[in-house]
């Protein structure tokens, strides 16, 4: 089935089998392999991407269901070769080891901080509890999000400070 997607700001058209997941479409049709697949049943969160502004598990969505949607993956998180503020914070706070959960963590975190730039530690732990990491014990990831919040602060909140 012909499917049109807006991926990281680019319009792409793919011809896919109806049973192909959006995760596999991104990875194997569009070669955007930054999105990882850890469980294929929606628990681990490694495949999380942003679809029309919402954090979504791309292993639980069929590519054809995303027809016309606007999609952001880890490859579109920062422009060019530079790290964005969230990525920089992950590096500074050692928020990753093997890196496999990292793209899903980043995308869930990006969606959260865009919507709630002042999210508390408890809120961060609650929202990201759907993303599993086996290496870090999560401590560095939480610190990274807390640190990155200021970069997401809305103009009026900045002024308030």
């Amino acid at each position: 089935m012909r499917t049109t997607l807006h991926v990281n700001g680019k319009l792409v058209e793919v011809d896919v089998e109806p049973r192909l997941t959006l995760a596999d479409c991104l990875r194997h049709e569009l070669r955007l392999t930054g999105t990882h697949v850890g469980c294929e049943h929606g628990v681990c969160g490694a495949c999380t991407i942003i679809v029309d502004g919402q954090a979504v598990r791309s292993c639980l969505v069929l590519a054809v269901q995303a027809d016309g949607a606007s999609i952001q993956t880890v490859e579109g998180l920062a422009g060019g070769d530079a790290l964005g503020p969230l990525q920089t914070a992950f590096r500074r706070h050692h928020g990753l080891q093997c890196g496999f959960c990292t793209p899903g963590m980043l995308m869930t975190a990006h969606a959260l901080l865009q919507a709630e730039p002042e999210a508390s530690e408890a809120r961060i732990r609650e929202v990201l509890s759907g993303n599993l990491c086996r290496c870090t014990g999560y401590v560095g990831i939480v610190k990274a999000l807390l640190d990155a919040r200021s970069a997401y602060a809305r103009p009026h909140t900045r002024e308030a400070r």
Partner: peptide, 21 residues
Amino acid sequence: IERLEDLRFLRGRGQYVDDLE
């Protein structure tokens, strides 16, 4: 020292086995 490998992992440029073309 901040990790050298982070630069690829944070940008989705890691090469895990299923990523190999």
